[in-house]
Amino acid sequence: MELSRVRELNRAADLLRLRAVRMVAPHGFGYLGQVLSSAELMAVVFAESFRPGTDELVVSPGHYIIVAYAAGPELGLLSEGELTTYGYDGSSLEAIGTESSPVADITGGSLGQGLSSAVGLALAAQLRHETSRRVFALLSDGELEEGQVWEAAMFAAHRGLDNLIVLLDANDSQVDGPVSSITTLDPIADKWESFGWAAYDVDGHDVASIADALGQAIAQSRPAIIIARTSTARGLSCLPEGADGHFIKISGDLIDAAVAELEARRA
């Protein structure tokens, strides 16, 4: 990948972070860590692969919907002004995705169900012979603790759903702490490979690696998963040590510092 493209994609990732900081800031806390970890992954998907109107997006962990909102203006699906309503009473931009959430085709707050929904969309495309349509499903690593994910994984491979791509934000974060301290998920790639999937284990903050894996995943003749190894603290050095990545508190001077840091890097 050309250096200029790397720089563009990194700027796009930081734009997602900046928008997320601005959405969360008025409330003092929120699902910012999820954007910090998945920013590069989703920036690359939206810039390189996702075709609005043709492809479909499932955001399985509903609290990750904030990253889809953040990408909404570039996709032409949301205005910058609408983003300011995030999380307020009466807004369709609820902090945990609902049926009214824009940008994503399906989202869900009860974890572990989104892959099955994505499989349903991919199966619909297969039954209709819509061969160019791709279904992208954003999942989090904590969700792999849910058994339904593996039901869906088996079914997708059995049906040969090569139009299905899972984007796994492996940020090692769940409510009670690091995923790895609660359930051993690794070797994640081996698990999916053994279920009949193509698996790509990449540095989830390296846009060139992500883009390369995405290209290969799309070309596969079986369902594919990008395992993006990430951190919920990535891209904001101003955050205090040991901040709770699942639900980051941010107020006062910290907001100003975060905005300044991101704007400086995007300049």
Partner: peptide, 11 residues
Amino acid sequence: AEANMISMAGA
């Protein structure tokens, strides 16, 4: 795999 079956059916 009833959980997967129902969620797929919804989609």
